[in-house]
């Protein structure tokens, strides 16, 4: 394949914010991918930092497993502040 493997691109829009996924580019190596990502995804000052990762290196959860991975969190409301009822005088906690 002459246009090189696929790379996923992540852009940090500004300091204080995490890198977010914006799309993908084809390139043969990291430097080429970085330049391609810069030219495609930051022309409108959308970013201050770039990551490029070979798509093949991403390990992703399988949507079929969403039930076992993510549903069990839903019934543990004690992880959230409102579940712990306190007198009004100290409810600011």
């Amino acid at each position: 394949m002459t246009d090189g493997p696929l790379w996923e691109v992540f852009v940090r829009p500004r300091r204080g914010v995490s890198h977010g996924h914006v799309g993908s580019v084809h390139a043969h190596d990291g430097e080429q991918a970085l330049q391609a990502a810069r030219d495609l995804f930051t022309r409108r000052s959308e970013g201050v930092s770039l990551w490029v990762v070979p798509s093949a290196d991403i390990v992703a959860s399988n949507p079929v497993d969403a039930g076992q991975l993510f549903d069990p969190a839903a019934d543990k409301d004690y992880r959230f502040p409102p579940a712990h009822v306190l007198p009004d005088e100290v409810d600011y906690m």
Partner: peptide, 11 residues
């Protein structure tokens, strides 16, 4: 020769 390079040359 490819679209990524179209972006680069235009830049």
């Amino acid at each position: 020769h490819d679209l990524e390079e179209e972006m680069a040359v235009a830049n």
